[in-house]
Nucleic acid binder design. Structure first.
Lengths: 204, 204
DNA sequence: ACCTGAACACCGTTCAAGT
DNA sequence: ACCTGAACACCGTTCAAGT
């Protein structure tokens, strides 16, 4: 009886590995779960995981990517919501993904593969937010500062889950600052050179 | 000729190890520097480091603690400066320590020893900032939100050094928000029993 | 108390071989 | 293409022994 014959479809096994890795990484951490124990928990050889994901860091990236795909689908349904509602959704969502994001951050200094992926994602989120804010009437300068501030705060939320009591206040502070600033604009400016933003900054 | 006789005073050797570890951790990262290579670079046995610092994580903690001591001495000379000047100092200082702080964050998920130390430090900084802000006339509620916001932003700065172009803007946004809010207070409140703060902090 | 050299258990990755 | 079992080089920590 050939033991190394495939009994399930490759993508099913791939999903199995991802599910087991998600569970393990979140419960026991990245360094806390060895490839050997992970393989054993699924019932495959250690090298099978290597075959599907090449190495541990790529397994991590694939894992987070899969989670992000689910999140994107959900977020796209909030197109019509207010900025604070969207911030609220992102807040809850980020908290759910917090442990995973933390693991990614933990690998950024050690693995340039993870770092490259993380930086790319970060950049994409930044551009996306910026575009959303400008659609809603923010000046370019406002959009820069607000997206950056929001991202920094999100980082803080993720890395310091113990401070969750303060999160709502900080978020409210941020959201109301942004919304009042946007309200004061009177409408989207079509004079990009004008310094109507209350924040005076060097040009981008 | 006895090779394991101590030639230099213990605290000198301790400092030697710390200096070599600082250099190595910053250049090659935490996981990138093995205890073996670190020991070799100093010219001692691998176990000598273990004897002084017990394990790698405690070595890291001792390292950061030493750097913090230097920073504290410098900061204490800024008592009379404005809030934005102090934020500016902290900004520059944090950027210098950035790589080290990143390493600490990277170890937080894996090592509960590092996590406990980090959380303690974080709490102390929070309480310290809060007190400083209230001395300058912030209400308890304001102090809570502002210190938390500032800490989140600092986290963001440290974890995303690639966004340094935007840092000054975000800092200015933060500092001016805080200062204008403080200016609007008219004076410090002397009613500590009032429940304007929803955060109950244990004393130091 | 301070330090060495050797051993230990473990890790992620790779290799040769099977189907 | 998919998968195994064994080997590989490395890691941080520990142990017995020296001074």
């Amino acid at each position: 009886m050939p033991r190394n014959k495939r009994e399930v479809a490759p993508d099913v096994k791939r999903a199995e590995i991802l599910a087991a890795a998600l569970e393990a990484f979140c419960c026991r951490g990245y360094e806390g779960t060895s490839m050997a124990s992970l393989a054993e928990s699924i019932g495959v050889s250690q090298n099978t995981i290597s075959w599907y994901f090449t190495n541990k860091d790529r397994l991590l990236i694939a894992l987070v990517e899969a989670q992000l795909q689910v999140a994107r689908a959900e977020y796209s349904r909030l197109q019509a919501s207010s900025i604070s509602d969207r911030l609220q959704w992102i807040l809850t969502y980020i908290q759910g993904l917090g442990p995973l994001i933390n693991i990614v951050h933990g690998r950024v200094p050690a693995s340039q593969e993870v770092r490259a992926w993380h930086d790319g994602l970060h950049q994409r989120i930044l551009i996306f937010f910026r575009a959303q804010l400008m659609e809603r009437g923010a000046t370019p300068a406002q959009a820069d500062v607000f997206t950056q501030s929001a991202l920094f705060v999100f980082e803080g939320i993720v890395t310091h889950p113990q401070d969750l009591v303060n999160v709502e206040k900080v978020m409210y502070f941020l959201a109301s600052s942004v919304e009042s600033a946007l309200g004061a604009n009177g409408g989207p400016s079509d004079d990009p050179g004008h310094e109507s933003s209350s924040i005076h900054l060097p040009g981008t």
